[in-house]
């Protein structure tokens, strides 16, 4: 009876210790990536190659999702604003929601599930098929050759994708607000321009996405590198990448928002 009461508590304790332990390991891994980044930044074509896989191949999903999110914002924003007689402020509403929150967060979530999971699966499979071992036996550090280029490619791609997501969202809001509902095009843009501040809204949003990019790619490459080298292990690692990334993005978003705005 006492045992049944204690066992969830014990599990919680284990879970907390495990989480702290993982945080320590992942921080050391991060330092290892930074220490081994010199080579990948000197041989920048390695990073460019990975940017193709993490950035270019994520373009479609970012463009389409951004457009739809903007359209939904336009529709929902209009029905709410029109009750207060401020439908003219739609442009400002769409732009501010996207720039400050939705753009960086949604782009990062999409990036985690599109590029992050692929990164984990790729590195995990390289480990399972002894490719990482082969590399280190060939006196090539896999962190420098495999992990660091992917990390930097992700960090560089993320703000680009977030900016594109914002633009597509604003265009989507325009399509619904102006072309469909028939608001004035001039007031859509002028309300936006009057309320959006370059530094506070645009730049801070992009800084957010830079942090998200670092967090997501760090989690993705770590989970891949740390995966149990079996089919089940790699698939579990891929799942963990998406779940952990999503949680970290949302938690980090709160912290960054509290600091920035």
């Amino acid at each position: 009876m006492f045992e049944t009461l204690l066992s969830p508590l014990r599990k919680l304790g284990h879970w907390v210790i495990e989480a702290i332990w993982r945080l320590g390991v992942i921080s050391r891994f991060f330092v290892a990536i930074l220490m081994n980044s010199g080579q990948s930044l000197l041989r920048f074509h390695l990073v460019i190659r990975e940017m193709y896989f993490s950035g270019v191949l994520s373009l479609i999903i970012i463009v389409v999702s951004g457009l739809f999110v903007g359209m939904v914002l336009g529709l929902q924003g209009y029905t709410t604003l029109v009750r207060f007689g401020s439908a003219d402020a739609l442009g400002a509403l769409v732009a501010l929601s996207l720039l400050r929150e939705l753009g960086p967060v949604l782009a990062a979530l999409l990036f985690a599930s599109r590029a992050g999971s692929a990164m984990t699966a790729e590195i995990g499979l390289m480990k399972a098929t002894e490719q990482l071992d082969a590399m280190s036996v060939m006196a090539v550090n896999p962190i420098a050759r495999v992990v660091a280029p992917r990390f930097w490619a992700g960090v560089l791609s993320m703000p680009i994708l977030a900016a594109l997501f914002n633009v597509m969202g604003i265009i989507g809001g325009y399509a619904v607000g102006v072309l469909m509902i028939g608001l004035d095009s001039g007031s859509y843009w002028s309300q936006m321009q009057a309320n959006v501040d370059l530094h506070v809204d645009v730049v801070n949003g992009l800084i957010k996405s830079l942090f998200f990019g670092m967090a997501v790619t760090l989690i993705a490459v770590y989970e891949g590198f740390d995966a149990t080298p079996t089919a089940a292990g790699v698939s579990a690692a891929t799942t963990r990448t998406v779940v952990t990334s999503a949680l970290v993005i949302l938690a980090l978003d709160f912290v960054l928002t509290a600091f920035m705005f």
């Binding site: 790729e122 499979l125 390289m126 098929t129 002894e130 490719q131 071992d133 082969a134 590399m135």
Partner: peptide, 9 residues
């Protein structure tokens, strides 16, 4: 290596 461990990419 056992199965060659060629770099698949």
């Amino acid at each position: 290596f056992q199965f060659g461990a060629l770099f698949t990419d």
